[in-house]
């Protein structure tokens, strides 16, 4: 690990001010992904700003009838919150499908959104990777890519976003609240939060340097049956091959978001109109324009079949 200086801050304003003084610094909260990457020298910040003690660890009701989840709320606490379990079951289900108990105790809401891909070539510093080293190439294209993206990828990068939580957040129309060094706050709909890889896969979100996530908000509950089905190589503690998150209403309408298929949680609202008629039309709409390799082509039928199973389960 490269050496770094360290400071702990007690407010969001102090955090962004610290970043302004030390461009190239990184915020650290749970640290479960950042430290892992620092050990491998994939991340080499010269300065760490510890934001883990910011008073952003509450889950509060909003005036609109939704929830505001503080950026520092731990994954375990978010999954366990009585309101989340009752009204946003998809979010609890997605959270507990991810990582291990130890990691969920540490990982934060904001950090979960910002975690980086688990593409093995991103992790292997002996291999080219446009995300890790822009311009070096992509070893996953033509390499071992059974786990990789089938939609939204580019000639520069076919990595997937690893988060389960983000899939639920996408289906729930979450918004990400931030503050920048000038103290300016904004709310970014999760649909607009992640950047397509294009020619610049190292740029993963629309956050500006030093912009700090302060909260994630959920609109008021939409009811319905919430199911998160994650397909993985092990029964527990593994990243998704694909994941299907649904909210299905009694009349058969609803929402679908996918994990493990692209650089972001994948949702195509227009495709959801076909939901009352079953999985095929929805899957076709979600995966329109999919580009597969011989190793990951299985994801297309797997999405459709998993969605069919989930819709049957929702009918009860």
């Amino acid at each position: 690990m490269k050496s770094f200086t360290y400071e702990r801050v007690d407010s969001a304003a102090a955090a962004t001010a610290a970043f302004a003084r030390m461009p190239g610094a990184r915020f650290i909260a749970g640290g479960t992904n950042l430290l892992d990457l620092m050990k491998l020298e994939i991340e080499t910040p010269q300065h760490l700003i510890d934001v883990s003690r910011l008073a952003l660890d509450k889950i509060e009701a909003t005036a609109e009838g939704g929830l505001r989840i503080g950026a520092m709320v731990r994954n375990t606490d978010l999954a366990s919150d009585a309101r989340v379990r009752r009204d946003y079951g998809l979010l609890t289900r997605a959270l507990v499908a991810g990582a291990s108990g130890q990691l969920r105790n540490k990982a934060t809401t904001a950090g979960n959104l910002l975690q980086r891909t688990r593409c093995p070539y991103f992790y292997d510093t002996n291999q080219p990777c446009n995300k890790r080293k822009p311009g070096s190439g992509c070893a996953a294209i033509g390499g071992f890519n059974r786990l990789h993206a089938v939609v939204g990828a580019s000639d520069a990068c076919i990595a997937t976003h690893p988060s389960d939580m983000a899939v639920a957040m996408r289906a729930l129309d979450a918004a990400i609240e931030t503050v920048d060094a000038a103290g300016k706050a904004r709310a970014i709909p999760i649909a607009e939060f992640y950047r397509a890889p294009g020619k610049t896969p190292h740029l993963e979100t629309v956050l500006a340097p030093g912009e700090l996530i302060t909260a994630v908000t959920l609109p008021k509950p939409v009811g319905g049956t919430h199911i998160y089905h994650k397909v993985r190589d092990r029964a527990s503690y593994a990243f998704a091959l694909i994941a299907v998150g649904v909210i299905v209403q009694r009349d058969g309408t609803g929402r679908v978001a996918l994990g493990g298929v692209g650089y972001k949680p994948w949702r195509v609202e227009a495709a959801e109109a076909a939901l009352p008629r079953g999985a095929k039309g929805v899957a076709d709409g979600l995966l329109a324009g999919a580009k597969t390799t011989h190793e990951n082509a299985y994801k297309l039928p797997l999405v459709e079949r998993t969605l069919a199973g989930v819709l049957a389960q929702a009918k009860g």
């Binding site: 360290y6 702990r8 650290i28 640290g31 479960t32 430290l35 892992d36 050990k39 760490l48 510890d50 883990s52 375990t76 291990s100 108990g101 130890q102 990691l103 105790n105 540490k106």
Partner: peptide, 28 residues
Amino acid sequence: DHGQCGACTVIVDGRRINSCLTLAVMHE
């Protein structure tokens, strides 16, 4: 040493965590 095996599990403020994936200086 990468949070994958759990051998380093300790209990901090009543919660189990991977002690390999957290900086000592963050535990004031």
